[in-house]
Every structure is written in C-alpha cells, then in structure tokens.
Design a protein around this nucleic acid. Structure first.
Lengths: 209, 209, 209, 209
DNA sequence: AATGAATGAGCATTCATTCAT
DNA sequence: CATGAATGAATGCTCATTCAT
C-alpha cells in the first residue's frame, strides 16, 4: 500500500511536473514574445512536449495564459498578503510589500515582466480574471490602509483605495524603469537604490504632514 | 489658378480629414478591443470608409497603431513639455503635469485608456517606437527633476529617472483606479480628490525630509 | 448612365457568378465525399478560387453546406409548389410532384444524391434549417392533401401529414434504389418504370377503398 | 478447474457486458450527436469506462460504429426475416414487417433514430457495410415479393425490388414523421394510427387493381 | 482617391490512435 | 484487462495585404 501510494504520488508529481513544465515554458515564451506573439507551438517546443499535450492540461490558449497569470500572481499575492497581515506599523508593512515585489523581480525578472507588461491586456474573456486578480490585491491593501488610518498611523483624509493603487503604481513603475531599460537591470546596487527610493518616497508621501 | 489652388486646398483639407477620421476611428476601436483585437476592417467600418482606404493613408496595421500612439501621445507630450518648461518651482511643474494628465482623462477617457493600457506593452515590432515615445516623456521629466535638484528644490540623493517614472506611475495608477472601475468614473468629485491626493502625496514624498 | 448601369450589372452578375461557382463546386465535392469529408480546401480547388474567398461569400463551412441545401432545395421546392398549386384533381398533382422529383434526378443526379443522403445529417446547428426546409415541403403537401379531402378526392380518415411524408418517402426510396445501386442508374427505362410504379402504387394506396 | 471455468465464464460474461456497455453508450451518443459528432471520448464517458478501453473491444471508431449498426440492425433484421419467412399471405407478412418496425420504435426510439438517420448515409469508408446491411433487408424483402407474385398474391408487373424499397420508404417516413417532430412522438394513439395508415395505404397500393 | 473582391500564410483547435504503466 | 497521458496530423477560420477597376 505504501508502494501504491508512492506510485500514485510519483504519478501525481509527474502530472504536476508536466503541467508545471508547460506553464514555465509559457512564461518563458510569453515574456519573450508577448501575448499575441506567443504561439502554442512555441510553448510546446519550449517545454519539449507534443503539440496536443498543451491542450491536455489547458483548455485553450487563453486559459493557458490565464494560468500563467494566476500562478505567478498567486505566489506574489500570498507573500503580499503575509505582509499585509503582519501585526506591525503601517510603514513596516509597506516596506515589506515593496520588498516582496523587488525580491520577486530579482528572482524571476521574466515572470515579473510578464505580470507587469501584460496585466490588463488581452481579449475580453481573460481580462476579467486578470483584472480581478489585480483588484484583489488592491482591495486587500486598501483595507490595510483603512485599518491603519483607524489606528492613527495614517492621515484620515487619504482615500485608502488610492493609497493602494498608488503604492502598486510606484512599485510597478519602479520596476518598469528596469524592465524598459531606462536603468540598467544588471546593476544590483541600482535595483537596491530604486527599492529604497520607492519605499521612502511613498512613505513620506503618505505619512508626512 | 486660384480655383485650382482652392481645389487643392479643399482636397488637402479633405485628405487630412480622411486621415484624421481613420485615426479617430482607430483610437475608438483600439480602446474597445485592445491592440490584438483591433482589425483593420473594424477601423474602416467605424470610420465608414472603404476597407482598402486605410492602406492609402497608412502603410500597414502597425503604422496605423503607431500613428494612434504618436498622435495621442504628441498632444499629451506637448502639454506635458509645456509644464516641464515652465519657469517655476518644481512643485508647480509637477502639479501642472498631473493636471494635464487628469484633464486629458476628463476630456477623452477612451484615448487615455488606450495610452495607459497599451503604451509600452506590445509585440516586438512596434515596441521600439512606442516605448520610445514613453521613454521620451520619462527622460524629459527626469531632466526636469535633475535641474530641480541643481536648483536645490529637490533632495540631491534622489535618482531623477526614478522620480520621473514614479510620477507617471502614480498618475497612471491614479487613473487606473477609475479605468478599472475601483472608483466611480462618473464621480467628478472623486476624480478631483484623486488628482489632489496624487499630487500631494507625490510631492510630500519627494520633497519632505 | 447606361454604361454605368451595365457595368454595375456586370459586377453584380460577376459576384453572383463567383458565389454560384463556389456553390456548384461545393455540391460537386459534397456529393463525392459527403458532409464530413468535404474540406473547404477541396471546394476552393474545385472552384479554382483562393481559399479565403469561400469565406468571403459564406460565413463558415456550415453555412456553405446550408446554402447548398437551400439552393438545391429552393429550386425543387418551387417546382413542387407549382404542382401543389395546380388546380387539378389530387391524382394529377401527385403525378406532377413525382415527375418533378424524378426529372430533377435525371437532370442532376449528384445534387439529388446530396439532398437525399445528407438531409437530416449534420452538426446540430444546421440540421434545424435543413429539417425546416424539409418540413416546409411536407407541410405544403399536407395542406394540399387536406384540401383534397375536403373536395372529396381523398378518403377523410387519412392523416394528411402522413400522406405527405409517405409520398416523399416513396419518392425518396424510389430514387434511393438507384442511388444505392440496387437498380441500374443508367437504365433510363428502369427509371421510367420506377417512376410509374411509385406514382401508381401510391395513388392506389391512398385512393382505393 | 471448475473454479477456473467458472471464472472464465464470469470473465466472459463480464467481457460481453463491457462490450455491450460500450455499444449501448455508442448508440446513445450516436443518436444524440450523429455520426460526425460522435467522439470516442463521449462514448467512453457515457459508458463510464476509460478512454482507451474502447480500443480493446473495437479496432477503431469506424468498427465501433459499424458494430452499432450491425447489432441494432441484426436484431431488427432477425425479426423482419422471421416475418418474411412466415408462411402466410403477403398481406400478413407486410403487416408483420411494419409491426416489427413500429414496435422497435416504441421500444427504443433512439436506436431507430440512429438507424433511420444514418443508415446508408455516411462517409465513404463505412458505407459499404452499412449499405450492405440495408441492401440485405431490401433484397430479402424483394425475394419475398417475387415469391408472392409467383403465388399470385401480387400483380406480376410490379418490380419486386421497388416494392421492397417503397415498403421501407413508407415505414421510414412514417417513423420520420415522429422523429422530426411533425407529429407528436408521445402520442401513442397517433403512432398506432400512423402504423395502420402505412400498412393499409401500402397494401392497397400494391394489391389493388 | 476610392472601393472591396481576392489572396493565402498563419494559427488555434480537435480528435483518432498509440503506448507506457 | 484497464487506464489516461501523450502524440501529431488534419483542418477550419482569421485577417493583413494586394490589386483590378
């Protein structure tokens, strides 16, 4: 029985691996060629699997790309949520959130590039979910800001939703500076400085009176 | 000859009208369906001109979309540049730039939506030019910040390029809040408050020490 | 103006020709390969037009095949209707209808083969219309039989709808005998005898008491 | 050994059950989606067996469908043959054949629908066998009619093959009236009347002089 | 300049069939 | 026997672009 369980485990793992393999390949191709340029064939070739297997794991192209977002976003969301839930002063939480984002970029810049450049773009169908995923983070952060206001850690007159969108706007654009090549993405120190400046500027902006 | 000249004048005007007509139609369709979903046929139908006429005025689809950006961006850029060139304290200029962006949104939300959702996000081909257009504004603003630092209006330790990207990030996300429906886009007062908050937060962030 | 009208006429005619050309080609391929085996490419090749042109005139494969039915059926329907409307004894009308069907077979056996072998078969969508077209004839004939009953030309206890379906069933099977090769389709005399037998048997069946 | 035999017996029965199960599922799906729309996967799902198991019992899709016909047809054929072989007047035999067909419809309308809508109508591949199955009944009936003519029960000038095709045409169309919804398939009395009319009309048609 | 019919390469998607487990 | 993952050829359909009128 242990053996059988193990076998099933292996099989399961194998299945997950395959799916994961294709997903990774999709991220790769997607980040290189963008949404439109990404052909299923390229993904299959990149993953070194047969053409039709992609359709074994994903209903269609849209769902595949959807999953790319969902997966990448889910990981990010989880980490961000952990920072949001941290029982600390709002400044520490904001620092944490920015840190999570920059760390993600350092670890897998291509995945972040996809998330940054393609979120909100797509044929009608998918946009809902992606927009939804994005909204989710915004609203979670907005709640965090609202609570902070009630604890007196933040000026009451600020609109929490705007605080949230501006935070992620600052992060996004901070990273975009590297993604677009306006600053050198291989310069670790520059990335660190950018992170610092995003955090400090944002915090001063929302807290200083 | 006068008659002929007049005729030519009329014709030219007519030509420009046609071009303009198609361009406007492209913005319309583009904002509705996004880059990928925008078919030449849709544009022609929207402009109520014949299919092939689009190819008289634009070499191909890419050039058409390129022109959409160029035109929309050119107008925006001109106004932003005017604010950048204004001989005033950096805070006034920043206020001006944010004002220009929000005003543009109030006047033509669809065009702004296109600019926001599609700029810098595109299949390989056009990215250069569009990215270029975007970079242009960033770099112009970066220069403005650098000069402001030299005049002592801004802390010297800030990276000017990041100041610029963060400014536009804040603006973009401020507007995105409405584009994505997180805040009510028909609520004029909310838009005004958002503008105010974006400006104030940003300025406090970069100036407060 | 006359010239212009002529030109337009020519253009129209040309357009109709193209459509017609493709339609004929579709009948040809369809009768050879059946519904499933009929590839758009084959139709295009048969019509000697470009692949995409088929989609210029027909929305998709289904609509093309739909049109094949509609066209073929329309012609048949018109002739049958003429017989139905003839102001004569029911026996003469029935004779006329059978004559129309057999004549159509003599003239274009392939088209009749398509009509006979493919009616009622197809992906869900199309079947409705084809079934509808078929129902139309049945119901028209049923009305004819009902009127005949009221004129006392036919026993009152017969169900008119059944009279109609049985008539066309007799015709269909009479022709099927040749389509399936149970009787020699090149034997003109055999066809004539079959027509005779279908008519006589059917009429005796419904009239004799 | 007894045990083994028993086991084999059980296995055989089980095997037959499995085969039968798949066959039934095929009829089901086939009647719902038609020849083209019937995917192996659908059949497997309907039978609640694994995808590949279908290929243990049937060489390929064609053979599966072939078997559907063969099985359904075999049962029908057997009953029809029994009526054909009955040592009675031709009218009684015809009555019997019609009765068999209508009874089959009452018992399993879906299977009859498949037989009616798909027999003799198919892509090249399978047509031979299916057409063959159909021809078989026709020819058997034709022989019956020929013998009846020799016994003087039927006019000699009738073509026996045509008598046979017309009989099955009348039956087919009588049932088609319900299959196509021209008459209410839930109205038992209507079905009975239809059967009556088909028999009487046909018999009067072929016998009355 | 204006029209829209014609072209065909490109791509997503399906599905019968095989095969390792 | 049983399973369902894996394969890839086949094909419908789209849409940018050209061209005759």
């Amino acid at each position: 029985m242990a053996v059988k369980a193990k076998k099933q485990g292996v099989r399961r793992a194998s299945v997950d691996d395959r799916r994961e393999l294709i997903l990774r390949a999709a991220v790769e191709v997607f980040s290189r060629k963008g949404y439109t340029g990404c052909r299923i064939q390229d993904v299959a070739k990149e993953a070194q699997v047969a053409y039709g297997l992609v359709y074994h794991y994903f209903k269609n192209k849209d769902e595949l790309l959807e999953s790319v977002f969902a997966t990448g976003w889910k990981g990010f969301l989880k980490l961000v949520q952990a920072e949001i839930d941290r029982e600390e002063h709002i400044t520490a939480r904001v620092r944490g959130i920015v840190g999570v984002a920059f760390e993600a970029y350092r670890r897998d810049p291509r995945a972040v590039k996809v998330l940054i450049l393609e979120v909100g773009r797509s044929p009608a169908g998918g946009s809902v979910n992606r927009g939804g995923a994005f909204s989710q983070v915004i609203l979670a952060a907005a709640n965090m800001f609202k609570a902070a206001q009630q604890r007196g850690e933040l000026p009451a007159q600020l609109e929490p939703v705007l605080c949230a969108t501006m935070l992620f706007g600052a992060i996004e654009m901070g990273l975009t500076t590297f993604v677009m090549g306006l600053l050198d993405k291989r310069d670790e120190a520059a990335i660190a400085r950018a992170q610092e400046q995003v955090v400090e500027t944002y915090l001063r902006g929302v807290t200083a009176r």
